[in-house]
Simulated scan of single mutants.
Amino acid sequence: MSPHVTITTLPQPSVIHAALPGAHFWDAYAAPDPAPEASALQAWLDLAVRTPGWTRRLMALRNRLVRLVGLQDLGQLDGGLGAGRPQAARYRVGDRVGIFTIRHLDAREVVMGQDDKHLDVQVSLCKREQDGRSVVVLGTVVHVHNTLGHAYMAVVKPFHRRIVRAMLARMPLPAADHGPR
């Protein structure tokens, strides 16, 4: 894991924190915010278009395998975002962003989700101050509904953690974190 990416707790108060009761899985990782002036959704879009190639290959494999057991082919994290830098201003609550639907949107937090009969997943990118520095916190909360959902999470959980850390590690560092020049 990048030394700039740290395990943390879901921010309080935040919309995603309210989803914790009854959750079967949750995690959160923080990294320095390279663009504190950008909205939370813009930060997510900037992360999604930097999805590592190995993550795209894992998602393609995941999509092929889950169709065999009746789960949804979600596509890719950056699916439909196009080339260049996608602009947050064009998105509203209810719109799809890659594999997720936007559920909550304000300048400091975007919450997106994907639900099916096996499990409900919510992902939040929250911008906040931590120890006097601007950080982004990428958090996930999962509610499992049945045995297939539990089996799916048992397989996906280790990959999820690597993917989240790798995505955050690919963010550019704020100018102050680059060291002496």
Rank of each mutant, 00 (worst) to 15 (best):
Ser14Asp: 07
Ser14Cys: 04
His17Ile: 10
His17Gly: 14
Leu20Arg: 11
Leu20His: 08
Pro21Glu: 03
Gly22Trp: 12
Gly22Asn: 13
Phe25Ala: 05
Asp27Leu: 11
Asp27Thr: 14
Pro32Ser: 04
Asp33Arg: 12
Pro34Val: 09
Ala35Val: 06
Glu37Asn: 08
Ala38Phe: 07
Ala38Arg: 11
Ser39Thr: 15
Ser39Asn: 10
Ala40Pro: 05
Ala40Ile: 09
Leu41Gln: 06
Leu41Tyr: 05
Asp46Cys: 07
Leu47Asp: 10
Gly53Leu: 11
Trp54Leu: 03
Thr55Lys: 14
Arg56Gly: 09
Arg56Trp: 09
Arg57Lys: 11
Arg57Gly: 00
Leu58Ile: 10
Ala60Ile: 07
Leu61Met: 15
Leu61Gly: 14
Asn63His: 04
Asn63Pro: 09
Leu68Arg: 15
Val69His: 12
Gln72Asp: 14
Leu77Phe: 15
Gly79Thr: 05
Gly79His: 08
Gly79Ser: 13
Gly79Glu: 09
Leu81Asp: 00
Leu81Asn: 01
Gly82Arg: 04
Ala83Tyr: 03
Gly84Glu: 03
Pro86Trp: 01
Gln87Lys: 13
Gln87Ala: 13
Ala89Ile: 06
Ala89Asp: 15
Arg90Glu: 05
Arg92Phe: 02
Asp95Val: 00
Asp95Gln: 00
Val97Trp: 00
Gly98Phe: 02
Ile102Asn: 00
Ile102Ser: 00
Ile102Glu: 00
Ile102His: 00
Arg103Leu: 15
His104Leu: 03
His104Ile: 05
Leu105Val: 02
Ala107Glu: 13
Val111Cys: 12
Val111Asp: 09
Met112Asn: 08
Met112Arg: 14
Gly113Gln: 04
Gly113Cys: 02
Asp115Thr: 07
His118Leu: 05
Leu119Thr: 08
Val121Gly: 10
Val121Asp: 07
Gln122Ile: 02
Leu125Asn: 10
Cys126Leu: 09
Lys127Gln: 06
Arg128Met: 12
